[in-house]
């Protein structure tokens, strides 16, 4: 866990619409009116519609423009806002940067804690109970299931999102992209690489 990450409460909260949705949905599932699998399927059809492309633009700019990266480090909410991406509820954003020594991964106990303005709707696995608990207890195994093997000795940091703080992983910029434009670079940035369950694509992985 990030050592400078603190909570102002020691238990979880459910409120507002999140509580109402859980309440009715759990009753309907229990009574057999709703098949949770079918429900997930409908949601999944639309989950990429807000799209992680906003986040990819932020990462590509961070890779290309050192002054922008500094502003992201200083105040990510404002720097992301510069590109026109703002949340409805004023969530605080923070970037966590991958380096040759450190790999960052993001999780949350509540499905609502996800940086929607940059990543769109969370994938179903992000909200699943196994991911939420195992990302913390056995991050290496979770990464392996996503097909990610990190070099020996690399430290994994897991960041637990809250309603107040959302994280955006800045993946490592792939080698061989020194003269690439921001829009070319954005093509390398996948949603999973910004959650930390993937890496940025390599130049030969994009057509």
């Amino acid at each position: 866990m990030g050592k400078d990450h603190s909570h102002d409460h020691d238990h979880s909260h459910l409120d507002g619409m999140e509580l109402k949705v859980r309440t009715l949905e759990s009753l309907l599932v229990e009574k057999g009116y709703v098949d949770p699998g079918a429900l997930d399927e409908i949601v999944e059809t639309y989950e990429t519609r807000v799209g992680p492309r906003n986040g990819a633009a932020v990462v590509a700019k961070a890779w290309s423009d050192p002054a922008y990266l500094d502003r992201l480090r200083e105040n990510a909410t404002a720097a992301i806002g510069e590109l026109g991406f703002t949340g409805r509820q004023g969530e605080h954003m923070r970037i966590v940067e991958n380096t040759p020594e450190i790999h960052n991964m993001v999780v949350c106990t509540l499905c609502s804690c996800y940086p929607w303005p940059v990543l769109g709707l969370p994938p179903v696995w992000y909200k699943s109970a196994p991911y939420r608990s195992r990302a913390v207890s056995e991050p290496e195994a979770v990464l392996a299931e996503f097909g990610v093997t990190l070099p020996e000795g690399k430290t994994i940091r897991v960041w637990d999102s809250t309603a107040e703080m959302r994280y955006l992983v800045i993946p490592e910029r792939p080698a061989g992209t020194e003269d690439w434009s921001e829009s070319q670079l954005a093509e390398l940035v996948t949603r999973d690489s910004m959650i930390g369950t993937g890496l940025a694509l390599l130049p030969d992985e994009v057509a």
């Binding site: 238990h11 509580l19 009753l27 106990t109 939420r132």
Partner: peptide
Amino acid sequence: LASAVERSHRSGEWQAAAARTPHGKPI
């Protein structure tokens, strides 16, 4: 499918579940 009374009861159960769940664990 679900009455207001049932929803109110279930809502309380979810709030209680959240209160006993440490942050970092699924509710």
